[in-house]
Design a protein around this nucleic acid. Structure first.
Length: 478
RNA sequence: GGGGCCGUAGGGUAGAUUGGUCCAUCCUUCAUGCUUGGGGUGCAUGAGACCUGAGUUCAAAUCUCAGCGGCCCCA
């Protein structure tokens, strides 16, 4: 009776929306109770997850980029220079209009993205072909006045963790190559998070305002909607013209620069938490987990020996480079198991009288729940093996889960039927007119034609009936 | 863009139909003590709440309006 009354802390993951909201609180990722719509607070634990996640982005970018930082405030005069860009953002810009009691002569925008903050400086910095390429990124907050339902980590009024890179090149082709490089970096990044991705070129009507084209990285969430978790834009010389970014070529002529920009936000953490988490809480790949191994003493009466053994084990594992927590608190073991499972700790080491008698420990995996007895002197190497295996198996599981929810369709009726279960593949001739008609009919978006095998096939466009070898993917999106 | 529901301790809730029984219920949490200890130990004592503002009324957690905030559905 008592046991039945113990309710799970979280709603089941199948009830995704509720599960997600409560997990963020119970798992201490974000506090959603800040009293302004669309703004949320990072708990210290969540912030550590963020820190480790962004350390990976930095590691990948730092090979070939420089990190810098530009101002939050953008003068209206700069912000309003690029017509398409304005059109894309003007409805969601916050404006600073006063300083103290004085009206400002030139209003200041809170950056919704930083092109117009960075490019006036690029105009100054770029003089000669020898200055190129420039590859700079920053990790900053940005503001967008969202009017729809906001959601922590996914749709925010303050994006707290926007990694945006801005590159400048001499030629269009070189910039195009950089877009490819960016996409490869993102794919690699998401592999490290054990998150499967699909890369596609966004349809023209869905590209970044002011870009020649946009490449996007999407993943599939547990509620069968896709989440855009990275984009890379080829800006051509559109911004170079409006911001007058020119370089002197080998032959002395002035040329407009070619630019790209690419970004990732805290949506990467939304995906991380959502894709790996389960009914018991968070599940982290070991590289991200703030605590990788928790040591739990199982005490009976006189327990000095057990405590001592646990301390020794914890120390030894720390020396081996693991992030270790030793839970000596006064709770019962079961309560500790639940607590650390919620926190997503990949491995739990239990040591009780039974284990100690055999000079062993019980090792439990968070991802699979498997329990194994391991001799204490082999603990470090056994844990090393499992750390690698946990990452592999998380990625494998996530990939399988996504692949199982991709459906081949030949008609729009089929798409409409399947779209609530995941991603639909459907032949598309590539024409805008047909694409918009398809979106209209289905009530879902075209993500694009995937770069991978997913985007290739054979069939006829459901609107114009023209034969095509291109397959588009459609889904409900966030 | 359109529609609906909701706001009571840190979290989850009862109280609203019919305004007064409410210095507000229960579970959880937190604090202290004892107890217990291989999947949420039990007991005792204690702490903690009616979103904001205006209105109706002798009287508002309860009714009305507005603001703020949250959730859900449709396009």
């Amino acid at each position: 009776m008592k046991i039945e009354e113990k309710k799970a802390i979280l709603p089941p993951k199948s009830n995704f929306s509720e599960w997600y909201n409560e997990l963020l609180l119970a798992g201490e990722i974000m506090d959603v109770r800040y009293p302004v719509k669309g703004l949320y607070v990072w708990f210290p634990f969540g912030f550590e997850v963020r820190k480790r996640t962004y350390a990976i982005i930095r590691e990948l970018l730092d090979k070939d980029h420089k990190e810098a930082m530009f101002p939050l405030l953008i003068p209206e005069t700069e912000f309003m220079k690029e017509a398409e860009h304005i059109k894309g953002f003007e409805n969601e810009v916050y404006w600073v209009t006063r300083g103290g009691k004085n009206e400002l002569d030139v209003k200041l925008a809170l950056r919704p993205t930083s092109e117009t903050a960075i490019y006036p400086m690029y105009k100054v910095w770029v003089r000669s072909h020898a200055d190129l390429p420039i590859k700079i990124y920053q990790i900053v907050n940005t503001f967008r006045y969202e009017t729809k339902h906001t959601r922590p980590l996914i749709r925010l009024r303050e994006i707290t963790s926007f990694k945006e890179a801005h590159t400048v090149h001499a030629t269009w082709d070189e910039a195009a190559k950089q877009v490819d490089v960016a996409v490869q970096i993102y794919i690699e990044f998401y592999k490290r998070l054990a998150i499967p991705t699909i890369v596609s070129k966004r349809p023209q009507w869905d590209k970044f305002p002011g870009a020649d084209y946009t490449m996007a990285v999407d993943t599939l969430m547990p509620d069968n909607k896709t989440l855009q978790i990275g984009t890379a834009h080829h800006l051509g010389n559109n911004f170079a013209k409006t911001f007058d970014i020119k370089y002197e070529g080998m032959n002395g002529e002035q040329e407009y620069a070619q630019q790209t920009c690419y970004g990732i936000s805290e949506r990467c953490i939304a995906a991380l938490v959502s894709i790996h988490g389960d009914d018991r809480g968070l599940v982290f790949p070991p590289e991200i987990a703030p605590v990788q191994v928790v040591v739990i003493p199982v005490l009976f009466g006189k327990s000095e020996e057990i405590i001592k053994a646990c301390r020794e084990v914890a120390e030894r594992l720390k020396d081996e480079g693991f992030r270790v927590a030793l839970d000596e608190s006064d709770e019962r073991p079961g309560a500790k198991y639940y607590k650390w499972e919620m926190k997503g700790v990949p491995l739990r080491v239990e040591i009780g009288p039974r284990d100690l008698k055999n000079n062993a420990a019980t090792v439990v995996r968070r991802d699979s729940g498997s329990k194994e007895i391991v001799p204490i002197d082999k603990l470090a190497e056994e844990i090393k093996k499992r750390v690698i295996d946990i990452h592999k198996s998380l990625l494998g599981k996530a990939r399988k889960s996504m692949e199982e929810r991709i459906f081949d369709c030949n008609t729009l009726d089929e798409v409409r039927d399947k779209i609530s279960e995941g991603i639909a593949r459907i032949p598309w001739c590539g024409e805008q007119e047909c694409g918009l008609a398809m979106e209209e009919t289905v009530g879902a978006g075209i993500l694009g034609i995937p770069e991978s095998e997913l985007g290739r096939g054979y069939g006829s466009c459901p609107i114009c009936k023209k034969e095509t070898t291109s397959i588009a993917i459609m889904s409900k999106t966030y």
